[in-house]
Amino acid sequence: MHIVVCVKQVPDTEAPIRIRPDGTGIEESGLSFVMNYYDEHATEAGLRLREQFGGTVTLVSVGPERAREALRTGLAMGADEAILVTDPQLDRADPVGVARVLAAVIRTLPYDVVLCGKISTDDNAGIVGPALAEYLGVPQATAVARLEVDAAGSRALVHREVEGGVEVLSVPLPAVLTVERSLNEPRYPSLPGIMKAKRTPIRTLTLAEVGLAAPAPRAVLARLESPPARRAGRIVQGDADDAVREIVRFLREQARVL
């Protein structure tokens, strides 16, 4: 079975971000970047399918040179190959544009399953997976919390987390699946894995090499600002009965839910 995992490099969510004074984006200097959290789960899912069926796990990323590090993380977890599409013209690409680039690359590879994260933690878009499925012309399942592939490797049975329940969906392969964090527990890279990842060459491609023109993004960032600051309010300490009275008064007079 040939598995492709789409991997994005994102700022570490633990760290604070600094918004550029002109509101055009964030300051990247001093920021640490990691593999998108959900893509660790996607990589893990890919590795488990390979353990079950044999085959290959290929990572594909669209991003600047630094995105290599995210690919190295995936290689160290156990992926076989990695491809980075990097091109200054891609700096402005919106998620739909990224999906188009990924599709152009993945179309040239053998694939039975394409795995993406449910969302990227920087953009929060949740767009790339379904858009990629459309460009590849294959079915999709989003927010997959459980995944089983039949013995023939022809269909996936997935659980999707939907409001108030779980949808059990049968999806013919090849397909694009976007994964939830509850799908699995990503493994840590092993020491031999890390050594091997250092030696594995990462194939890099430019936009022209994947056969695409510069993207014309439809959605553009006009301004980035800090969220309205929340200020600490009143603090109540002491007796539980007093505290309860304060909360009830707050619920009635300020929040107006009583």
Partner: peptide, 19 residues
Amino acid sequence: VATRPMYTRKAIATVRVDG
């Protein structure tokens, strides 16, 4: 023109969809 949280709500973006 839409507003949306980004970077785990550490920033609010204003996004324009033209065309």
